[in-house]
Design a binder for these strands. Structure first.
Length: 380
DNA sequence: TCTTCCCGCCATGGC
DNA sequence: GCCATGGCGGGAAGA
C-alpha cells in the first residue's frame, strides 16, 4: 500500500471501475465529518446525510452509531441527530472510563457485565441507576440484540484502551475480550467472525477520526490498534483530524464515496442488458430485482451511475513515497491528471463537487511540496 | 490463502 | 401494516 501501482488498463478504460477502498466506512466517515463538522451545524438528517454522501441509509446508521458512542452525536428524533462535535468526546470518554472502572473493566476480563451496564448507550454514556441495577442482576440475559449493538461494542472497544495502560491492542485481543463467553468455543467461533467484522468497522471510523491508528503488533506482526485518543483528534471541534494530519495521512480522492452501488458494477456498466444477471451471485440478482421496483435508494443511484457517475481515480493510501524516482512520480501524476480529466466525476451535488475540487487542489499542492522536498534532499 | 470489510437481507420494534 | 433501525454473515476485493 505504500506505492501507487499504475491503474490497470481495465480501470483506465472503464470509468465504472469499482474500488472497494473508495467506499470504505472510514472514507465515508471522513466525508461525513467534512460535511457536518463545521460551524453552524446543529442537526443532521439521516436522509440528508445519505443523499449528500451518495450512500444508502444503512451505512449512515453505522457511522452515527459509532459517533454517538463517543459523544459526537446524539439522537434527537427519528431521522434526526444533534451534532455535538469533537468537543463532546472528552466528557464522553471520561464517563466511559468512570463506568469501566466501576465495572473493573480490563482486556482480560469478560465484558458481559460491561455490556449490560452500558447497554443504554443511546444518547451517549449513561448513568441510569435503574438500568444498571436491572442489568447487573440479569447480565447474562439482557436483550441480546442490544447487547450486540455496534454502539455498545464501540464503547467496550474504547474501554479496552482507556482502562489499561497499554496503547496497543491486537485485533485478536480485542476480539477475544469483546466476546461474550470466551470459554465457549462454539459461541466464540460464531461471535468472533461477526464481531471482528464490526471491529473493523469501528476501527475504520475511529482511524478516520484519528482516535486510533491501525497498525501491527511489533513482534507478532498481527493487526493491532493504537490508541491516539484526543491527541489524535481535533480539540476545537471544527477541524477534522484529517486536517491536522493533512500531509501525513490525507487520503486524496478516495474520500469521495463511490455512488456506484454494486460490486459487479464493472460488468453491469458495460452491459446494461438484463442478461448480465445470469453471471451475478444469487443474492446480488435478488437485489437487482429490487432495483426494478425502485425501492432501494442506492440502487436507484446505480441507474444514475450507468449514466456517468464515477469516482475519483486517486488512490491516496497508495501514494508514492518521497524516495521514489521523480520520473515515476511525474508519470503517475500525469496519469492521474489524465484520468481525472478523462473521467471527471459527476457528483450529484454541489458539496461533493466542491470537495472534489478541493482535493484536486490539495493533491497538486501536496505534490509540489513533495517534489520540493525531494529537490532539497538532492541538493543537500 | 488469508485478511479485510462492503453490502444488503431481514428481524425487530415503534407508531 | 408501514417504516426506521441495525444485527448479521456471505462473499468479494485486496494483501
Amino acid at each position: 500500500m505504500s506505492s501507487l501501482p499504475p491503474p490497470p488498463e481495465s480501470q483506465t478504460r472503464n470509468p465504472y471501475y469499482y474500488s472497494r477502498k473508495e467506499k470504505s466506512l472510514g472514507v465515508l466517515c471522513t466525508n461525513f465529518l467534512k460535511l457536518y463538522n463545521r460551524d453552524g451545524v446543529e442537526s443532521i438528517g439521516l436522509d440528508d446525510a445519505a443523499n449528500q454522501l451518495g450512500v444508502e441509509r444503512r451505512r449512515i446508521y453505522d457511522i452515527v452509531n459509532i459517533l454517538e458512542s463517543v459523544g459526537v452525536l446524539s439522537r434527537k428524533a427519528k431521522n434526526q441527530y444533534f451534532w455535538k462535535g469533537f468537543g463532546a468526546i472528552p466528557p464522553a470518554l471520561d464517563q466511559l472510563k468512570e463506568e469501566a472502572l466501576r465495572e473493573n473493566f480490563s482486556t482480560s476480563g469478560c465484558f458481559h457485565s460491561a455490556n449490560a451496564s452500558s447497554e443504554n448507550h443511546k444518547g451517549g454514556p449513561s448513568n441510569s441507576k435503574t438500568d444498571r441495577q436491572e442489568k447487573s442482576s440479569v447480565s447474562c440475559k439482557v436483550d441480546n440484540r442490544k447487547e450486540k449493538s455496534l454502539g455498545l461494542l464501540t464503547q467496550n472497544f474504547i474501554k479496552l484502551f482507556i482502562c489499561s495502560s497499554v496503547d496497543l491492542i491486537s485485533l485478536d485481543t480485542a476480539a477475544t475480550a469483546l466476546l461474550g463467553d470466551i470459554h465457549d468455543p462454539t459461541a466464540m467461533r460464531n461471535n468472533s467472525a461477526a464481531k471482528v467484522r464490526r471491529l473493523y468497522d469501528i476501527a475504520n471510523v475511529f482511524s478516520s477520526m484519528n482516535l486510533i491508528e491501525k497498525t501491527h503488533h511489533p513482534e507478532s506482526r498481527k493487526p493491532a490498534f493504537r490508541w491516539l485518543g484526543l491527541k489524535g483528534s481535533p480539540k476545537n471541534g471544527h477541524a477534522t483530524s484529517l486536517d491536522l494530519n493533512e500531509s501525513r495521512k490525507r487520503m486524496f480522492g478516495t474520500e469521495i464515496t463511490n455512488t456506484l452501488p454494486k460490486k459487479y458494477k464493472t460488468d453491469s456498466a458495460l452491459d446494461c442488458n438484463s442478461n448480465q444477471n445470469a453471471d451475478m451471485p444469487t443474492h446480488k440478482r435478488r437485489s437487482n430485482l429490487k432495483d426494478e421496483h425502485g425501492r432501494n435508494s442506492t440502487e436507484q443511484q446505480g441507474k444514475h451511475s450507468s449514466k456517468g457517475f464515477v469516482f475519483g481515480p486517486f488512490t491516496p493510501a497508495n501514494m508514492p513515497k518521497v524516495g521514489d524516482s521523480e520520473n515515476k512520480n511525474a508519470r503517475r501524476v500525469q496519469g492521474l491528471e489524465d484520468l481525472a480529466s478523462s473521467y471527471r466525476p459527476l457528483y450529484r451535488n454541489q458539496a461533493l463537487s466542491d470537495l472534489f475540487g478541493h482535493y484536486v487542489e490539495a493533491w497538486k499542492s501536496w505534490y509540489d511540496e513533495v517534489a520540493g522536498k525531494k529537490q532539497i534532499q538532492e541538493v543537500s
